[in-house]
Protein backbone atom coordinates (compact mmCIF):
# COMPACT_ATOMS: atom_id res chain seq x y z
CA UNK A 1 0.00 0.00 0.00
CA UNK A 2 1.49 3.23 -1.14
CA UNK A 3 1.08 6.28 1.02
CA UNK A 4 0.25 8.45 -2.04
CA UNK A 5 -3.10 6.82 -2.32
CA UNK A 6 -5.32 7.90 0.46
CA UNK A 7 -8.79 7.07 -0.82
CA UNK A 8 -9.16 3.30 -1.20
CA UNK A 9 -11.87 3.83 -3.78
CA UNK A 10 -9.57 5.79 -6.03
CA UNK A 11 -6.46 3.72 -5.57
CA UNK A 12 -6.38 -0.01 -6.12
CA UNK A 13 -3.42 -0.13 -8.41
CA UNK A 14 -2.27 -2.73 -5.99
CA UNK A 15 -4.28 -4.76 -3.62
CA UNK A 16 -4.06 -3.63 -0.08
CA UNK A 17 -3.91 -6.02 2.80
CA UNK A 18 -7.41 -5.04 3.72
CA UNK A 19 -8.58 -5.89 0.26
CA UNK A 20 -6.69 -9.18 0.32
CA UNK A 21 -8.22 -10.03 3.67
CA UNK A 22 -11.66 -9.17 2.40
CA UNK A 23 -11.13 -11.20 -0.75
CA UNK A 24 -10.01 -14.32 1.06
CA UNK A 25 -12.93 -14.08 3.39
CA UNK A 26 -15.61 -13.25 0.86
CA UNK A 27 -14.46 -15.26 -2.21
CA UNK A 28 -14.97 -18.65 -0.52
CA UNK A 29 -18.40 -17.48 0.58
CA UNK A 30 -19.27 -16.59 -3.01
CA UNK A 31 -17.97 -19.91 -4.32
CA UNK A 32 -19.72 -21.90 -1.65
CA UNK A 33 -22.98 -20.05 -2.24
CA UNK A 34 -22.68 -20.66 -5.97
CA UNK A 35 -21.96 -24.33 -5.39
CA UNK A 36 -24.91 -24.43 -3.07
CA UNK A 37 -27.11 -23.28 -5.89
CA UNK A 38 -26.20 -26.47 -7.63
CA UNK A 39 -27.08 -28.76 -4.82
CA UNK A 40 -30.02 -27.38 -2.86
CA UNK A 41 -33.37 -28.81 -3.88
CA UNK A 42 -35.63 -25.84 -3.38
CA UNK A 43 -35.60 -22.98 -5.81
CA UNK A 44 -36.10 -20.46 -3.07
CA UNK A 45 -32.90 -21.54 -1.42
CA UNK A 46 -31.12 -21.20 -4.70
CA UNK A 47 -32.42 -17.67 -5.02
CA UNK A 48 -31.13 -16.79 -1.58
CA UNK A 49 -27.72 -18.27 -2.33
CA UNK A 50 -27.58 -16.36 -5.59
CA UNK A 51 -28.39 -13.16 -3.75
CA UNK A 52 -25.49 -13.92 -1.41
CA UNK A 53 -23.09 -14.32 -4.30
CA UNK A 54 -24.36 -11.13 -5.87
CA UNK A 55 -23.82 -9.13 -2.68
CA UNK A 56 -20.28 -10.51 -2.42
CA UNK A 57 -19.68 -9.44 -6.00
CA UNK A 58 -21.07 -5.99 -5.20
CA UNK A 59 -18.50 -5.71 -2.43
CA UNK A 60 -15.78 -6.70 -4.85
CA UNK A 61 -16.93 -4.03 -7.30
CA UNK A 62 -16.70 -1.49 -4.52
CA UNK A 63 -13.25 -2.74 -3.63
CA UNK A 64 -12.15 -2.43 -7.24
CA UNK A 65 -12.90 1.28 -7.56
CA UNK A 66 -16.36 0.72 -9.01
CA UNK A 67 -18.70 2.27 -6.44
CA UNK A 68 -21.37 3.04 -9.05
CA UNK A 69 -21.45 -0.52 -10.31
CA UNK A 70 -21.39 -1.89 -6.80
CA UNK A 71 -24.44 0.12 -5.83
CA UNK A 72 -26.24 -0.73 -9.06
CA UNK A 73 -25.45 -4.39 -8.49
CA UNK A 74 -27.15 -4.27 -5.13
CA UNK A 75 -30.07 -2.12 -6.18
CA UNK A 76 -30.83 -3.63 -9.60
CA UNK A 77 -29.65 -7.18 -9.26
CA UNK A 78 -30.03 -8.06 -5.66
CA UNK A 79 -32.99 -5.80 -5.36
CA UNK A 80 -35.09 -5.72 -8.48
CA UNK A 81 -34.03 -8.80 -10.41
CA UNK A 82 -33.95 -11.11 -7.45
CA UNK A 83 -37.32 -9.78 -6.33
CA UNK A 84 -38.65 -10.61 -9.76
CA UNK A 85 -37.26 -14.12 -9.44
CA UNK A 86 -38.84 -14.60 -6.06
CA UNK A 87 -42.09 -13.16 -7.31
CA UNK A 88 -42.22 -15.66 -10.15
CA UNK A 89 -41.24 -18.41 -7.75
CA UNK A 90 -44.23 -17.53 -5.61
CA UNK A 91 -46.38 -17.47 -8.70
CA UNK A 92 -45.44 -20.96 -9.85
CA UNK A 93 -45.35 -22.48 -6.42
CA UNK A 94 -42.80 -21.80 -3.80
CA UNK A 95 -42.13 -25.40 -3.03
CA UNK A 96 -41.39 -26.33 -6.66
CA UNK A 97 -38.24 -28.37 -6.52
CA UNK A 98 -36.33 -30.62 -8.83
CA UNK A 99 -36.80 -34.32 -8.63
CA UNK A 100 -33.58 -36.11 -7.93
CA UNK A 101 -33.97 -38.43 -10.91
CA UNK A 102 -32.05 -37.25 -13.90
CA UNK A 103 -34.19 -37.59 -17.03
CA UNK A 104 -31.43 -37.21 -19.59
CA UNK A 105 -29.15 -40.19 -19.67
CA UNK A 106 -25.54 -39.22 -19.02
CA UNK A 107 -26.38 -35.54 -18.76
CA UNK A 108 -25.28 -35.21 -15.18
CA UNK A 109 -21.91 -36.92 -15.63
CA UNK A 110 -21.15 -35.33 -19.00
CA UNK A 111 -22.25 -31.90 -17.77
CA UNK A 112 -20.09 -32.12 -14.67
CA UNK A 113 -17.06 -33.37 -16.57
CA UNK A 114 -17.46 -30.79 -19.29
CA UNK A 115 -17.93 -27.95 -16.82
CA UNK A 116 -14.92 -29.14 -14.87
CA UNK A 117 -12.87 -29.37 -18.07
CA UNK A 118 -13.98 -25.95 -19.13
CA UNK A 119 -13.11 -24.49 -15.74
CA UNK A 120 -9.67 -26.14 -15.76
CA UNK A 121 -9.05 -24.81 -19.26
CA UNK A 122 -10.03 -21.24 -18.37
CA UNK A 123 -8.16 -21.25 -15.09
CA UNK A 124 -5.19 -22.81 -16.86
CA UNK A 125 -5.35 -20.14 -19.52
CA UNK A 126 -5.42 -17.47 -16.86
CA UNK A 127 -2.48 -19.09 -15.10
CA UNK A 128 -0.48 -19.15 -18.33
CA UNK A 129 -1.08 -15.46 -18.93
CA UNK A 130 1.86 -13.68 -17.42
CA UNK A 131 0.06 -11.25 -15.14
CA UNK A 132 3.24 -10.52 -13.32
CA UNK A 133 4.54 -8.67 -16.37
CA UNK A 134 1.44 -6.55 -16.59
CA UNK A 135 1.51 -3.41 -14.52
CA UNK A 136 -1.85 -2.86 -12.97
CA UNK A 137 -2.65 0.72 -13.79
CA UNK A 138 -5.46 1.18 -11.35
CA UNK A 139 -8.34 3.54 -11.71
CA UNK A 140 -6.79 6.41 -9.80
CA UNK A 141 -6.51 8.66 -12.84
CA UNK A 142 -9.78 7.56 -14.40
CA UNK A 143 -11.68 8.11 -11.23
CA UNK A 144 -10.01 11.42 -10.50
CA UNK A 145 -13.28 13.33 -10.93
CA UNK A 146 -15.23 10.62 -9.19
CA UNK A 147 -16.36 7.25 -10.44
CA UNK A 148 -19.92 8.28 -11.32
CA UNK A 149 -18.71 11.30 -13.27
CA UNK A 150 -16.18 9.15 -15.14
CA UNK A 151 -18.80 6.59 -16.12
CA UNK A 152 -21.28 9.31 -17.03
CA UNK A 153 -18.71 11.02 -19.23
CA UNK A 154 -18.01 7.82 -21.14
CA UNK A 155 -21.63 6.75 -21.26
CA UNK A 156 -22.83 10.01 -22.84
CA UNK A 157 -19.92 10.44 -25.24
CA UNK A 158 -18.41 7.25 -26.58
CA UNK A 159 -21.25 4.92 -25.66
CA UNK A 160 -24.18 7.23 -26.25
CA UNK A 161 -25.48 5.23 -29.22
CA UNK A 162 -25.34 1.97 -27.28
CA UNK A 163 -27.03 3.73 -24.41
CA UNK A 164 -29.92 4.90 -26.60
CA UNK A 165 -30.26 1.48 -28.19
CA UNK A 166 -30.46 0.00 -24.73
CA UNK A 167 -33.48 2.13 -24.01
CA UNK A 168 -35.20 0.64 -27.06
CA UNK A 169 -34.23 -2.79 -25.76
CA UNK A 170 -35.76 -2.12 -22.39
CA UNK A 171 -39.01 -0.85 -23.86
CA UNK A 172 -39.18 -3.87 -26.13
CA UNK A 173 -38.55 -6.18 -23.19
CA UNK A 174 -41.29 -4.51 -21.18
CA UNK A 175 -43.74 -4.82 -24.05
CA UNK A 176 -42.67 -8.40 -24.65
CA UNK A 177 -43.24 -9.35 -21.06
CA UNK A 178 -46.69 -7.78 -21.19
CA UNK A 179 -47.63 -9.61 -24.35
CA UNK A 180 -46.33 -12.93 -23.05
CA UNK A 181 -48.00 -12.64 -19.68
CA UNK A 182 -51.27 -11.40 -21.10
CA UNK A 183 -54.08 -13.90 -20.93
CA UNK A 184 -56.74 -13.58 -23.60
CA UNK A 185 -60.32 -13.96 -22.37
CA UNK A 186 -62.34 -15.90 -24.90
CA UNK A 187 -65.67 -16.01 -23.14
CA UNK A 188 -67.60 -13.17 -21.52
CA UNK A 189 -67.16 -12.84 -17.79
CA UNK A 190 -69.93 -14.60 -15.90
CA UNK A 191 -72.21 -12.50 -13.79
CA UNK A 192 -72.91 -13.34 -10.15
CA UNK A 193 -76.38 -14.53 -11.07
CA UNK A 194 -75.02 -16.93 -13.66
CA UNK A 195 -72.45 -18.26 -11.25
CA UNK A 196 -75.15 -18.80 -8.63
CA UNK A 197 -77.48 -20.58 -11.04
CA UNK A 198 -74.64 -22.72 -12.20
CA UNK A 199 -73.87 -23.75 -8.69
CA UNK A 200 -77.46 -24.70 -7.93
CA UNK A 201 -77.84 -26.64 -11.16
CA UNK A 202 -74.78 -28.73 -10.50
CA UNK A 203 -74.82 -31.76 -8.23
CA UNK A 204 -72.47 -30.07 -5.79
CA UNK A 205 -73.55 -28.87 -2.40
CA UNK A 206 -74.97 -25.40 -3.01
CA UNK A 207 -74.88 -23.90 0.45
CA UNK A 208 -72.12 -23.58 3.07
CA UNK A 209 -70.57 -26.81 4.21
CA UNK A 210 -71.41 -28.07 7.67
CA UNK A 211 -68.98 -26.99 10.37
CA UNK A 212 -67.01 -29.51 12.32
CA UNK A 213 -68.53 -31.07 15.34
CA UNK A 214 -68.59 -29.21 18.61
CA UNK A 215 -68.65 -31.46 21.59
CA UNK A 216 -68.29 -30.98 25.26
CA UNK A 217 -64.74 -32.10 25.35
CA UNK A 218 -63.67 -31.34 21.77
CA UNK A 219 -64.49 -28.50 19.51
CA UNK A 220 -61.43 -28.52 17.22
CA UNK A 221 -61.74 -28.62 13.39
CA UNK A 222 -60.41 -32.17 13.27
CA UNK A 223 -63.64 -33.55 14.77
CA UNK A 224 -66.35 -34.31 12.22
CA UNK A 225 -69.94 -33.40 12.96
CA UNK A 226 -72.45 -36.11 13.66
CA UNK A 227 -75.45 -36.69 11.47
CA UNK A 228 -78.91 -37.37 12.93
CA UNK A 229 -78.43 -41.11 12.45
CA UNK A 230 -75.26 -41.03 14.50
CA UNK A 231 -72.78 -41.37 11.65
CA UNK A 232 -70.17 -38.73 11.00
CA UNK A 233 -70.33 -36.20 8.17
CA UNK A 234 -67.31 -36.24 5.87
CA UNK A 235 -68.13 -32.81 4.58
CA UNK A 236 -67.65 -31.18 7.95
CA UNK A 237 -63.87 -31.66 8.03
CA UNK A 238 -61.27 -30.18 5.70
CA UNK A 239 -60.07 -32.43 2.92
CA UNK A 240 -56.53 -31.62 3.82
CA UNK A 241 -57.00 -33.08 7.26
CA UNK A 242 -58.60 -36.16 5.74
CA UNK A 243 -55.66 -36.56 3.36
CA UNK A 244 -53.21 -36.18 6.21
CA UNK A 245 -55.10 -38.67 8.30
CA UNK A 246 -55.42 -36.14 11.13
CA UNK A 247 -59.16 -36.52 11.59
CA UNK A 248 -60.04 -37.61 15.11
CA UNK A 249 -62.46 -40.39 15.61
CA UNK A 250 -65.65 -39.48 17.43
CA UNK A 251 -66.62 -43.05 18.21
CA UNK A 252 -64.19 -43.90 21.04
CA UNK A 253 -65.50 -41.02 23.08
CA UNK A 254 -69.04 -42.09 22.36
CA UNK A 255 -68.22 -45.64 23.28
CA UNK A 256 -66.77 -44.72 26.61
CA UNK A 257 -69.83 -42.64 27.34
CA UNK A 258 -71.99 -45.52 26.30
CA UNK A 259 -70.14 -47.97 28.48
CA UNK A 260 -70.33 -45.64 31.35
CA UNK A 261 -74.03 -45.12 30.89
CA UNK A 262 -74.56 -48.83 30.54
CA UNK A 263 -72.75 -49.32 33.73
CA UNK A 264 -74.99 -46.65 35.22
CA UNK A 265 -78.06 -48.53 33.93
CA UNK A 266 -79.20 -45.75 31.62
CA UNK A 267 -80.40 -46.07 28.08
CA UNK A 268 -77.63 -45.34 25.68
CA UNK A 269 -79.86 -43.21 23.45
CA UNK A 270 -80.22 -40.53 26.06
CA UNK A 271 -76.56 -39.96 26.60
CA UNK A 272 -75.56 -39.94 22.99
CA UNK A 273 -74.34 -36.44 22.33
CA UNK A 274 -76.29 -34.92 19.49
CA UNK A 275 -74.88 -32.30 17.24
CA UNK A 276 -75.12 -28.97 18.87
CA UNK A 277 -75.69 -27.23 15.59
CA UNK A 278 -78.54 -28.40 13.47
CA UNK A 279 -77.58 -29.61 10.05
CA UNK A 280 -79.13 -31.72 7.44
CA UNK A 281 -76.03 -33.74 7.15
Amino acid sequence: MTPAVSDPLLAAAHTSTTEAFGFWVLAPIAVLAALGMLFVRKAVHSALLLATTMIVLAVFYLAQSGPFLGIVQIVVYTGAVMMLFLFVLMLVGVDSSDSLVETLRGQRLTGLLLALGFGVLVVGALGRSAFDDVTVVGLGTANADGNVEGIARLLFTDYVLAFEVTSALLITAALGAMVLAHRERHTPRKSQRELSEERFRSDEHPGPLPPPGVYARHNAVDFPALLPDGSTSDLSVSRVLVARGDVQDVQPAVETTEQRSIEAGEAPEDVRPGPTQGGRY
Binding site: Q107, G111, A125
Partner: peptide, 20 residues
Protein backbone atom coordinates in the same frame (compact mmCIF):
# COMPACT_ATOMS: atom_id res chain seq x y z
CA UNK B 1 -32.67 -27.38 -23.74
CA UNK B 2 -30.04 -28.79 -21.45
CA UNK B 3 -28.69 -31.06 -24.17
CA UNK B 4 -28.26 -28.02 -26.37
CA UNK B 5 -26.61 -26.16 -23.54
CA UNK B 6 -24.26 -29.10 -23.08
CA UNK B 7 -23.17 -28.97 -26.70
CA UNK B 8 -22.79 -25.20 -26.45
CA UNK B 9 -20.53 -25.54 -23.46
CA UNK B 10 -18.59 -28.27 -25.28
CA UNK B 11 -18.15 -25.86 -28.19
CA UNK B 12 -16.98 -23.12 -25.86
CA UNK B 13 -14.51 -25.51 -24.24
CA UNK B 14 -13.22 -26.45 -27.70
CA UNK B 15 -12.76 -22.78 -28.60
CA UNK B 16 -10.90 -22.07 -25.40
CA UNK B 17 -8.74 -25.17 -25.91
CA UNK B 18 -8.01 -24.13 -29.50
CA UNK B 19 -7.08 -20.64 -28.36
CA UNK B 20 -4.74 -22.07 -25.77
Amino acid sequence: VRSYALSMLGGAALVVGALL
